[in-house]
Design a protein around this nucleic acid. Structure first.
Lengths: 114, 114
DNA sequence: ACCTTGAATCGACAATCATCGAAACAGCAT
DNA sequence: ATGCTGTTTCGATGATTGTCGATTCAAGGT
């Protein structure tokens, strides 16, 4: 689990609020992309359903190899949606609520302009 | 512009609310996936910024071929995020607010369980 | 009828992706 | 030290994707 520069969850200018410029789009799209895979969506939901979750609990929920699960967790982490750390033998991941809120706000009708 | 069966925007069991089963994940993930490309994210935001928008207005906003824009619009439409119709020479697209709301709710902390 | 313009489809191609098994790494317990 | 188990990384592979240009389709105008 190397150190990874993660995407800033600094989401401005909502989708329903207004236009998104090229730079913002490049920053935000990877977050949606990360949620755009069924396995990762379920992983994120599982992780969000608890304050934190061990990889050893996550993996058996899928009929996929451990390396594939690890790969998906990395993508969710690089997207800034989750974070994690090793504690002894096991690795735990938790959701980053700010990122979720930011995306949620982005999709909301008219948060500020109303 | 052929007829296309679009995805049901019937989003239940939020990501922050609880677990998402395999079937729901398969139904919802394509929506996030559609927003997971910078060009499509900007397209969606542009379309959402007006009640409707002509392809002829959309295309010049990007340094991409018309066929590429058309391709991305199709993906957004198949994901159920936008809809459109031809009126004479031009084709207009509009956002489907319900789909956006559904995704937004999915990402919200605790919509109902709070 | 014909041509022009806006948009979608087709066919192709390089790039990215999801997945796996094997190998490497990190802790812990003998 | 040695081995065992959980997790990540590496390398490979088949599938999907974003993009283009060429073609086709739709609707108007002449």
């Amino acid at each position: 689990m190397k150190e990874l520069p993660t995407i800033q969850a600094n989401v401005c200018c909502g989708l329903a609020t207004g236009v998104i410029d090229e730079t913002d789009a490049a920053r935000i799209a990877p977050m949606f992309k990360a949620l755009g895979d069924p396995v990762r969506l379920r992983l994120a939901a599982l992780i969000a359903s608890q304050t934190e979750m061990c990889v050893c609990e996550l993996t058996p929920q899928f009929e996929l190899s451990g390396s594939t699960i690890s790969h998906h967790l990395r993508i969710l982490r690089e997207a800034g949606l989750i974070d994690g750390e090793r504690r002894g033998t096991w690795v735990y991941y938790w959701i980053k609520p700010d990122a979720l809120h930011a995306l949620s706000a982005l999709l909301q009708p008219t948060p500020a302009t109303a």
